[in-house]
């Protein structure tokens, strides 16, 4: 396997009884790439992502994440990835600092390291004034930026983002994407699952899942050319409507 491919998937399949949720999907994701993983609800993208982050064992196929086999080294995978979802991110009833300390602790960072990280992170996000305030009192956009930073507190190789910017105001959303670009520029691979097509436009490459299969995989630009449409939303509509 190439050292540049941090995610390598071949014929990955997951069956629940007679139902094939994920049907022999194959793709590669390079180091530092922003990879969009799209699909409608029920297309199989959540199931596929669960296999990649080591919490669900595939029925067949091959996959390595950060160099570890999903069948045999699920625990090692969990240590080398970060995860952030819009639904659950931080504890509202803990302060900014307490949240950072808690998540740092989960990933086994030393106290000294947590203190350093915490200081850097708070400064980068400009949260000095609210560092000792409860997270629940922060605006949604701040929470999301903080949550993204916290998901990378242990310097993971890959960070998985689940619908990260739905419902956020446009300016905060841009700031959020700038953070993602920065992470990618530092060599962190960003894996975004979403069904918001405008999030897809920002990715380096996107795959679109329909009924358990990957039906399209390319840069947004080439996909738009291929389907002769103006935006990713229309690419998706063309694929999903057949």
């Amino acid at each position: 396997m190439s050292i540049h491919n941090v995610i390598q998937v071949e014929g990955l399949t997951k069956k629940f009884g007679d139902f094939t949720a994920v049907n022999a999907i194959s793709f590669k994701v390079e180091k530092g790439e922003i990879f969009g993983f799209l699909g409608a609800n029920g297309a199989g993208k959540t199931t596929a992502m669960k296999m990649l982050i080591g919490i669900s064992i595939p029925s067949s196929g091959k996959a390595t994440v950060a160099g570890f086999d999903v069948f045999t080294h699920a625990e090692s995978i969990k240590k080398s990835i970060g995860y952030m979802s819009q639904k659950f991110a931080l504890y509202d009833d803990l302060t900014v600092k307490e949240n950072i300390t808690f998540f740092g602790g989960i990933y086994g960072l030393s106290r000294k390291r947590i203190r350093q990280k915490s200081a850097v992170l708070i400064e980068e996000l400009g949260l000095e004034k609210v560092a000792n305030k409860l997270v629940g009192a922060l605006p949604l956009g701040w929470k999301q930026k903080l949550s993204f930073s916290v998901s990378m507190i242990h310097d993971p190789k890959i960070v998985f983002l689940d619908e990260p910017t739905g419902g956020v105001d446009p300016i905060t959303r841009r700031q959020f994407w700038e953070m993602i670009y920065k992470a990618a520029n530092q060599g962190i691979t960003v894996f975004v699952t979403t069904h918001y097509m405008d999030e897809a436009e920002y990715c380096d490459r996107v795959s679109i899942m329909v009924n358990g299969k990957i039906e399209a995989l390319d840069t947004p630009k080439k996909l738009k050319e291929q389907f002769k449409v103006a935006n990713m939303n229309d690419v998706f509509l063309k694929l999903a409507r057949g």
């Binding site: 409608a40 609800n41 739905g166 419902g167 097509m197 998706f236 509509l237 999903a240 409507r241």
Partner: peptide, 10 residues
Amino acid sequence: TTGVDPVSRK
């Protein structure tokens, strides 16, 4: 249309 896929939204 929150939380609904693009096809249903359209």
